[in-house]
């Protein structure tokens, strides 16, 4: 652990990511790469949503870029972005010492818990579109929320057994604290032989343009059509027992919904109906994925002690 801290400059954004990756790699996680699709949170990545279903063990860690169109502020707000990064860790079954593993990761990135106050504050998580909920906490560092910590109880409407432990780091928030800056755009991304690069230099223009697109240009009729198309496509793929491509259609539908939301194209009453439509799709994917793994004999259960569905 000492070694990791010395090797990476966690006072840069990329150093922070490298240190976290290396730490969780040492704990046995698969260091996966970000999903190549537009999603609102790291939880959507199939490595979390689908792999937390069923009895097979898994452990992954990855950075996930997240898109939240309604949070865009045209690059004007120092704390809000429509595109930002999460660092996601998922381990099933959740290890006995998972809280300590998390705290040790903070030590690796330079946080001394006898100087800075870290606190587990009750925060139970629920995702209506994913048919998922869990119990856990948000992590406060001197009063600021820096991570979410959840024991999944249900995903896609299915009971989680064994339970997946999920840790989500808000990378920009954490980096702002470590670097002592008040604006996301002032974060140092890297400070190498070729000079210093800031977060703002890389992403400010993107925030301005994407906010403009999300709020002003996104084609509303086309997005409604896309939502309907993704829905029917997903249903068709479920019929064909292809849960993985079916689930990609769910993520696309969900992003289309988020863009429509940013365009204020969905009324309050309609909103609930759209959420339920996405939820129905996620549940179908979850069940189909479970059935597919079951048909394969849950090959990742190394001791072959296959747990029954919902048991």
């Amino acid at each position: 652990m000492q070694n990791i801290t010395q090797k990476h400059n966690t006072k840069t954004f990329q150093g922070l990511i490298l240190a976290l990756q290396e730490y969780w790699a040492e704990q046995g996680c698969v260091i996966a790469q970000p999903l190549d699709m537009q999603v609102g949170a790291g939880t959507f990545h199939p490595f979390t949503f689908l792999k937390s279903i069923g009895p097979e063990p898994m452990a992954s860690a990855y950075v996930q870029p997240c898109r939240r169109p309604t949070d865009g502020r045209y690059g004007d707000n120092p704390n809000r972005l429509q595109h930002y990064y999460q660092f996601q860790v998922v381990i099933k079954p959740s290890p006995e010492n998972i809280q300590q593993l998390y705290l040790d990761s903070l030590a690796v990135i330079g946080i001394d818990t006898l100087t800075d106050e870290v606190r587990f504050v009750e925060d139970n998580w629920e995702s209506p579109t994913l048919g998922a909920w869990g119990l856990g906490w948000e992590l406060w560092l001197n009063g600021m929320e820096i991570s979410q910590f959840t024991y999944f109880q249900q995903v896609g409407g299915l009971e989680c057994s064994p339970v997946t432990g999920e840790i989500t780091y808000g990378l920009e928030r954490l980096a702002m604290y470590i670097q002592g800056v008040d604006s996301i755009y002032d974060l140092i991304w890297t400070d190498g032989p070729l000079g210093t690069v800031t977060y703002g230099e890389i992403f400010h223009q993107n925030e301005v343009e994407q906010s403009t697109y999300n709020f002003e240009h996104a084609d509303v009729p086309a997005l409604f059509t896309e939502f309907d198309h993704c829905e029917s496509e997903s249903k068709k793929l479920i019929e064909a027992n292809l849960p993985l491509p079916a689930y990609e259609q769910v993520m696309k539908a969900s992003h289309a919904f988020n863009l429509l939301d940013a365009r204020h194209a969905i009324s309050v009453t309609e909103r609930q109906r759209y959420i339920l439509r996405v939820r129905a799709l996620s549940k179908a994917c979850a069940e189909s994925y479970y059935a597919a793994r079951e048909a394969l004999g849950f090959p990742l259960c190394k001791d072959n002690s296959v747990t029954k569905k919902g048991a």
Binding site: P93, P95, E96, N124, L135, S161, V163
Partner: peptide, 10 residues
């Protein structure tokens, strides 16, 4: 109000 499970345990 909301009992939970964790790890491998029932």
């Amino acid at each position: 109000s909301k009992p939970m499970r964790w790890g491998n345990s029932k």
